[in-house]
Design a protein around this nucleic acid. Sequence first.
RNA 1: CGGGGUGUAGCGCAGCCCGGCUAGCGCACCUGGUUUGGGACCAGGGGGUCCCAGGUUCGAAUCCUGGUACCCCGACCA
Length: 491
Amino acid sequence: MAKVLTSKAENYSQWYNDLVSKADLAENSAVRGCMVIKPYGYAIWEKMQAQLDKMFKDTGHVNAYFPLFIPKSFFSKEAAHVDGFAKECAVVTHYRLMNDPDGKGVVVDPDAKLEEELIIRPTSETIIWSTYKNWIQSYRDLPILCNQWANVVRWEMRTRMFLRTTEFLWQEGHTAHETAEEALAETTQMINVYASFAEDFMAIPVIKGAKSANERFAGALETYTIEALMQDGKALQSGTSHFLGQNFAKAFDVQFANRDGKLDYVWASSWGVSTRLIGALIMAHSDDNGLVLPPKLAPYQVVIVPIYKNDEQLAEISVKADEIVAKLKARGISVKYDNRDSQRPGWKFAEYELKGVPVRLAIGPRDLENGSIEVARRDTLEKSIEQLENIDQFVADLLDKIQENIYNKAFQFREENTTKVDSYDQFKDLLVTKGGFFLAHWDGTVETELKIKEETKATIRCIPFDGAKEEGKCMVTGKPSSQRVIFALAY
RNA sequence: CGGGGUGUAGCGCAGCCCGGCUAGCGCACCUGGUUUGGGACCAGGGGGUCCCAGGUUCGAAUCCUGGUACCCCGACCA
């Protein structure tokens, strides 16, 4: 087959860029750092949205929408929060353009300067908590369990399609509670929702855990994360859920009358996942032939390619193909019958491999005679001839198998690339030669964490929830530690 | 924001050092024909402010100055 992608081995990040563009997911736009998400890429996002939205609703949440602009003054109300975001905010200073008095084009009208600048949201805690203040008077108004699907802007220095773009799409949940326990339970519930979405739908195994103080969200008391391992041995933070304590309630003076008739500040959580998940999907499963999509998120789960020599043959094949389409659709399987005459079969095979369609069916004159059909699976690239009868059942089972197989493959990869280390020298060596996740003891101090980051670029990805309690010594300082944490190089 | 690199047809590139006739190649595109079980072949055809602005020169894709955009490597991050 003609090679259209740089191979992973040759240059991983070039492979990634090639794939994004050749699989028609996204392209760079006229605006620095901002991408155009193309229909095929957006279709994957829509699948993700639909499933996540369902999971949010099933756990009692509702959707709302808050403004894109945030008054600058809101940002000074929570000190840690502004520290975290100040350096990457886009600011609106004027509201009008005028014709350039000196010639062609337009300039900003200096008379149209805003009294107070507006920040384009990098995240919505501040605008939402200023709103919640009006919604909450009593414990009877709690909890508030809102989510919003939105775009946000963070003025990043270096961008990469899906992984880090200046503008990105996400969802952000913002909840308000009577008690710390309730807010913490919500924080935990949502990291669990993210983990099951990642594992059951994206087919990506993740490690749930808490961020170290240093890696926490700006303004949070706890940040929980799901960490996934990519095929190049680097970690990708794939979703976070924050316990915000009473920080934002205090910053925006959101108090409520509790059950004892006393005023108290509201407890909060926030949680989000973004279009970065598409980057995770690419880097977790795909190969040198292109994208490999988990069936549960593939815009098309099945494609049917007819093979024919003339119009009569195509007509005969189409009768069969239409039957198959109807049977698959009846099972809720999304299928495309590609009967375009403008491309030849070989071209189509390569194209759908590039786009990661999980199952490809090819049907030609030979099959009409034999009552058979060729089935090709994207994950293993295996082909087989199957009976046309009950092909819908066969395909339905195969899609389940593929979903399971790519999860298992990713899981096995993670197992093979998770290493327990006890000495700092061994850690430094294997970090470079092997990569992946490292389970190591850490003394719990920011100083040690920063020293490791400075010397190796590795960070603590999380303190895993299900990590075994185990007495040990910090690999750097030798001070006591009660649990191994996960270190890795990260995106 | 620091270091390096690149902007020439929709995409990928050659030409630039050493200025000179009509700016070239591959893919893609259009037309016709033959094809169609792994990215078809033949013939014909269309498409260019050579990133932008200024300068040097009889003459600039090519040399000079400034700007700008993108890519790669670092520090910052979902």
